[in-house]
Simulated scan of single mutants.
Amino acid sequence: MGISSALAISRPPFLPSISCPLASPLRFKWLQQRTLLVSLRCWCGPSPKLNSDSETSDKSFSLGMSKSSWCAALGAVGFLETAYLTYLKLSNSEAFCAIGGGGCNDVLNSEYSYVFGVPLPLVGMVSYGLVTLLSVQQSGKNLIPGIGEIDVRFLLLGITTSMATASAYFLYLLGTKLPGTSCSYCLISVFISFSLLFITLKDYALEELQKFVGLQLAIAAIVVATLSNSYTITSPKLPGSSDMILEPYETEITEQSTTWTIALAKHLHSIGAKMYGAFWCSHCVEQKQMFGREAAKILDYIECFPEGVGKGRKMAQECTLTGLEGFPTWIIKGKVLSGQQNLQALADASEFVSQDSSYQLASKQNQS
Rank of each mutant, 00 (worst) to 15 (best):
L7P: 00
P13K: 15
L15N: 07
L15G: 05
P16K: 13
P16I: 01
S17R: 15
C20T: 06
P21G: 10
P21I: 07
W30Q: 12
Q32A: 04
Q33D: 01
T35W: 08
C44T: 08
P48H: 09
P48A: 07
K49G: 04
N51T: 01
S52R: 12
S52K: 13
D58I: 09
S60T: 14
M65L: 15
A83M: 11
T86H: 05
N92T: 10
N105I: 08
E111W: 12
G124A: 14
V131K: 11
V131A: 04
L134M: 13
S135P: 09
P145T: 12
T160R: 08
M163I: 11
T165S: 15
T165W: 08
S167T: 12
A168K: 09
G175N: 11
K177S: 14
P179W: 10
S182C: 03
Y185P: 03
S195K: 12
L201E: 08
L206R: 15
F212Q: 00
L217E: 00
A218F: 01
I222H: 01
A225M: 13
A225K: 13
T226S: 13
Y231E: 03
P239A: 04
S241C: 08
Y249D: 01
E250A: 04
E252H: 04
I253K: 09
I253Q: 06
T254E: 05
T258V: 03
H269Q: 12
Y276W: 01
Y276K: 08
S282Y: 00
M290L: 02
G292N: 00
G312E: 13
K314S: 09
M315V: 12
Q317D: 13
Q317T: 11
F327W: 15
P328M: 08
T329M: 11
G339A: 06
G339Q: 09
A345V: 12
L346M: 10
A349E: 01
A349F: 00
S350P: 08
F352N: 03
S354W: 11
S354M: 06
K364D: 05
K364V: 04
Q365R: 15
S368N: 12
